[in-house]
Design a protein around this nucleic acid. Structure first.
Lengths: 209, 209, 209, 209
DNA sequence: CATGAATGAGAGTTCATTCAT
DNA sequence: GATGAATGAACTCTCATTCAT
């Protein structure tokens, strides 16, 4: 039993080793320019080993998203469970989003790319459904926050899931667009500030006057 | 005289032929899975011909964005030039965004992918600067609309360019996220509705109470 | 008749135009890196036109050699026809070689490359036999100079054609090797001096003591 | 220990396998008409494997020369080190050249083509400098033989390096020109005989009378 | 389990050549 | 005769993936 446990742990450690390496390489080079050999090299493993832990390159790429989605899910569920007034839940939700960004900015951007990508169609059904489930649950949890606000007459009455979609779209849109602008103009990083205003505008936008 | 003109037109038609084919193929397969031969086949031309009109695959891909960016630019500048009150300009701006989407949804999504992608870094400087300039000008024009609203005391006082970035991020975010959701759930297309609410929330969000 | 003549002249002029351009481009880029479009551009003609005057790229390349071979042939025949003692003929022969080099150094090097090249095998039989004939005749003429020297007891008694081959090999070898050295070391051009010593050594080498 | 050694040997054997195949294919078709697939097929390997051992086609081509240059270098240095009179060193040098030719005629011809070619300019700096160094050293060693002869008053007083260049040019020139003649006239192979006379003439040519 | 050499399909791109105008 | 747009075969090279060790 002890042996088996240790083996499990070792195996998990290898997985982490690969994930950390993959994160670095994908972030730097993007999905297509990153090669499996790059990642293997970064992980100080051989290319063949990667395939013992991940079915193929796309699954490895998608796997990165899973962890951050799990974190997202936990955070928004937690916000939901707290006994707070809708306005305070909104604040907590925004706080959660900052934390999600801080959790791993590079992977987050990776994930947004994944969402908007041909890659998604080629995943194994299992991984695909895991991603789908986590996304759905997280959006659902966010929606419930809005629902509560609507029910209490504080927020305007729109479909809560649509509002959650918009909230998430705004979050990802700002991150992607701000990152993209930096390619043209390396100067300053306006992300934090832009995100702050974005959430402010959104919050004002859903509150009844 | 007539001959030269006709040749010009023929050349432009070929370009269009290729662009139409590229749009279809890129939309269906994404940048990487789409091959130049696919596109050539779709355009009923030989692979070599593509290279008479576009320097390489990435330039062809990026070229698709240019036209929609030009359209975007024209539309927002036009909104700016009209003598309208800020609230009406907001309405006109939102209307313009619907038209930009309608102008060519597939290319628009392509463009968002481009923006958030490794591809952008590999374009020819000329094309890159053209894209950059049109983006900057369009964001600038949008910002001026917000500026006017701020100056007239109708909108909250935040940096107009930040507001324009957020507006654009919201627009692209909603389109990308809604498209992405459809991969999981092909059923219904909530884009129009979601976009409508998104703009409503945004508009309410920037208006002083 | 006058019209036909003029047309002939025009046609010949076009040929020259192409040959001059081809010479420049081949010299600069070598056979393979030079494209027909490069040459057409240099000649201020369209690619298609080149094919009205030369069957294909290889023939155009080989054609360059023909003129210098003709010049070589004329010069060595002329040396032969003069009534000179063998030693003086040797001097005249060496002088002829200098002139052949001066006639067109770039083309001469082109020709040496051609001789030692896969290209030779793909020429049209006609061009191939022209080149072969001129080479053979020139070598033959040179051989006769040596023959005369042998017969008169001044030169050592070896097969005259072998001596001519060696003479020609020495000439081309020195030019190629000196040119090649310049790629490594751009500094100085030792060709003239090296060639001078080479001919001196050769001449001393075939003279009886 | 044994495993690593065996792997080294295996790797070296693969390299040889490729080199042998490349030699055959390049000799038969020349640099440009030979394709990497041809070579892979001849080596009974896949095209991709070639690139594990050689960076690209040109490096593979140039690598062929390296070994014969090394052999040349060793041989001429060895001649130099022996305690022999200049005349005997000349004989030994000539003998060395025959051996260099016999070492690998096809590769030797390949190398002469390389020297006189556009290819040389595109090599990796490392390979280029290796070739340059071996060439320079070999020419230097030959020059020293001549220098000794000059110092002892046996040879005419010309720049030893120029004499070495001429000696090498004669050697390569005779081989190239004789090979070239065989394309026209497949009959007989005069190389051996021509080379013999060439060296005889050269030796006589540098000896004081 | 880990390796990493080998694979080989497939991609983007070039360019000699053709042919309708 | 001249054009030059179009062709499309052919090339080099890459890299995700496999499998014998």
């Amino acid at each position: 039993m002890g042996i088996q446990e240790r083996k499990e742990r070792e195996k998990e450690r290898r997985r982490q080793q690969i994930i950390v390496a993959a994160k670095r390489v994908f972030s730097e080079k993007g999905f297509n320019k990153a090669t499996m050999e790059d990642i293997a090299h970064e992980a100080e493993l051989s290319p063949g080993t990667l395939y013992l832990y991940f079915k193929n390159k796309e699954e490895l790429y998608a796997s990165l998203s899973l962890r951050i989605l799990q974190y997202l899910h936990i955070r928004v569920e937690h916000v939901n469970k707290e006994e707070l007034a809708p306005e305070q839940k909104m604040d907590a939700l925004v706080e959660a989003m900052y934390d999600v960004y801080a959790f791993d900015p590079l992977i987050l951007i990776n994930m947004f790319h994944l969402q908007s990508s041909e890659t998604l169609k080629n995943l194994s059904p299992k991984l695909m459904s895991e991603i789908e489930e986590l996304s759905r649950k997280s959006i659902g949890a966010i929606a419930r926050i809005f629902e509560q606000g609507i029910d209490s007459g504080l927020f305007i009455d729109r479909h809560p899931v649509a509002m959650a979609d918009i909230f998430w779209a705004l979050f990802s849109g700002v991150i992607l667009w701000t990152t993209s602008k930096k390619i043209f103009n390396e100067e300053k990083d306006y992300l934090k500030n832009t995100l702050k205003i974005a959430f402010e505008v959104f919050t004002r936008g859903i509150e009844k006057k």
